[in-house]
Computed example of a mutant assay.
Amino acid sequence: MDLDRRTLLASGLVTLAATQAAAADTASPATAGAKAAASRPAGGMELAIAAKAASAPTGLAISRGGRVFVMMPRFDDKVPITLGEVVAGGEVVPYPDAAANRPDRSRPQAALFHVPNGVFDRDDTLWLLDAGLPEGKGAPVPGGAKLLQVDIRENRILRVIPLDSGITPTSSLNDLRVDIRDGYRRAYITDQGQGDEGAILAVDLATGQVARRLDGHASTKSQKGIVKFVERRPVMLTKGDAPPQSPKGGANGIALSPDGKRLYYAPLMGRRLYAVDTAGLLDPTVTDAEVAASVQDLGEKGMTGGLTTDSKDRVYLSLQEHNAVGRRNPDGTIEVIASDERLIWADTFWITPDRWLYISASQVNRRPEFNGGRDLQEPPYAILRVRIDADPA
Rank of each mutant, 00 (worst) to 15 (best):
D313G: 05
D2W: 05
T207R: 13
M1Q: 11
A382L: 07
V235S: 07
T31S: 14
S55D: 15
I62H: 01
P392F: 14
R6Y: 07
R159Q: 12
D347E: 15
A61P: 03
T82M: 00
T19C: 13
D123K: 07
S11R: 15
S165M: 05
G33R: 13
R181I: 01
L47F: 08
Y358H: 10
V291G: 02
Y264F: 14
N174F: 10
D123N: 11
R185L: 04
G195C: 00
A54R: 07
V68H: 13
A202I: 05
A289G: 09
E154K: 13
P267N: 02
N365L: 05
Q377F: 06
T15G: 08
G208W: 09
T26F: 04
G136T: 08
D375Y: 11
D375R: 14
D164T: 03
G373V: 12
L298F: 12
V14D: 14
Y264G: 02
M303V: 06
K224Q: 14
R122T: 03
L176A: 08
P103F: 07
G280Q: 01
L281Q: 01
L205P: 08
L282N: 02
Q209I: 04
A56I: 13
G270K: 01
A145E: 06
Y264C: 02
A23D: 15
Y381K: 11
A199Q: 01
L298D: 03
R355D: 00
L129F: 12
L133S: 08
P162C: 01
A21K: 15
L112W: 00
R177H: 09
D191N: 12
N117L: 06
A393E: 09
M45C: 03
G240W: 05
D389G: 14
T287K: 06
A34Y: 12
Q192Y: 09
D151Y: 01
T287M: 00
S171Q: 04
V386K: 03
Y264I: 07
V86P: 06
L126Q: 06
R64Q: 10
Q245C: 01
K52T: 07
L148E: 11
E197A: 13
R314A: 02
G12W: 10
A100M: 01
I161D: 03
S246Y: 06
G183N: 02
D175L: 01
L112H: 03
R185V: 04
D347K: 03
E91A: 14
L343H: 03
T19F: 12
I62Q: 00
G302A: 10
G305S: 15
